[in-house]
Design a protein around this nucleic acid. Sequence first.
DNA 1: AACTATTTGTTCGTATGTATG
DNA 2: GCATACATACGAACAAATAGT
Lengths: 240, 240
Amino acid sequence: MKNFQPIKQVKASDEVSNQLRHAIFEGRYLAGDKLPSERELIETFKVSRTVVREAIKALEARGLVLIKQGATGGAFVKELTFERLTNDCKDLFFLGKMSFDEICQARLSIEPIVAGLAAKHCTPEQAKLLIEANDNESNTLEYPETVMLRSRVHYLLADMCNNRFLTAIDKSLIQLVGTISSQFQPDTDKIHPPGMHNSIIDAVIAGDEAGAEKAMREHLLEFLLLLEGIESDYRNNKVD
Amino acid sequence: MKNFQPIKQVKASDEVSNQLRHAIFEGRYLAGDKLPSERELIETFKVSRTVVREAIKALEARGLVLIKQGATGGAFVKELTFERLTNDCKDLFFLGKMSFDEICQARLSIEPIVAGLAAKHCTPEQAKLLIEANDNESNTLEYPETVMLRSRVHYLLADMCNNRFLTAIDKSLIQLVGTISSQFQPDTDKIHPPGMHNSIIDAVIAGDEAGAEKAMREHLLEFLLLLEGIESDYRNNKVD
DNA sequence: AACTATTTGTTCGTATGTATG
DNA sequence: GCATACATACGAACAAATAGT
């Protein structure tokens, strides 16, 4: 006589939140669309404003909508990107569930594969973008605000692998390594000399899958070796 | 003269939510601990009950706490696991941001690496567990409720790779492929004959890294080939 | 510049449901 | 049954942000 309990003791705000979520999943609200206003939702669901607000707050916390205040405000459906995965990974890292070393090793495992796939699918337009990005790297040294451009080649390759899951994971790892390492090693740009992506790009443009994998692995090994100076405390512990 | 806007326009509920989140990250509240009750938080933060509730709701939506009501109720810190990553991946899949094919291909890329790492770190105890799980697979055919045990070898290997990030991603992929494929192909168990993991396990126990990678790749190719019968509509479209 | 309309953000008071002892 | 401690829910009111007139 067990396992009979559930009976549904659903919280109103969860029900509202779920219905809205499914509406988004069904495509009834597309990225950029505005959900009904609080007042409308109150009338539709016949619940209090508190319930509606908690429901929308939950959607916001899950990264599904963006709330804007004011006359043209409301809850707008967000374009889902890899940032959500990145945030989750950050949470796990800060909770001590993953070390920096593990993230680096994961990147070392996955990014060469991505580079190989990119070589497989490289189009002339993409090749052009890669070359451009690589040439611009030398210019970024004197513009601190463009430091992020240093990773542009990596992001481009991630986009070229033709697999959105791997793209998302790879971008998450790239960003994670970047943000974490720059927190206690602000001079990361110094150890990132221009021209180091040349061999990777050559292989990718040539469509040399194995070569791209190898070049990427070597590049990462070299780069990660330069990060060794970081205190081992930071590598395995939490940072804030 | 751009990029000057921020100035901090923090919402009270976000501020409360963030402070609680950081408290959890700092280890001031461990898994299982109860956060202060609503009343206490109201006094601590000097805000209204609504604000506190919205903040906690946001933490719940992010999967950080579990809310229970009643005399012993409250917001309890959850043990973070890979399930959160899995849920995010599911959201992305349902939103049409990833196809089933992409998930399968990602698994095909990552799981062999994981198997290789497992071979590298395999201990005698883990070898024992693997053999046990493999032997039990033949028994699961007549017990429908134990179908999940069929994936046990995969989960064990994921746990053995000594990299919690790869473990999380791999488990997410295993579970995703399982839940999605079983939705429109309930007979997945039929096409999963016992003994097919033998060569993988042999290589892992022998510590043969390259062999384990190869065996896993071949196993997955074989398995995924058997899923070809699935309507291509489902493979690229949304399911609910 | 001032006013207005719309929408979200915040507060308070009150009442109800649920689990424990 | 009852008291207690907690979350859940409602409704009214006011504050603040934003866009258009």
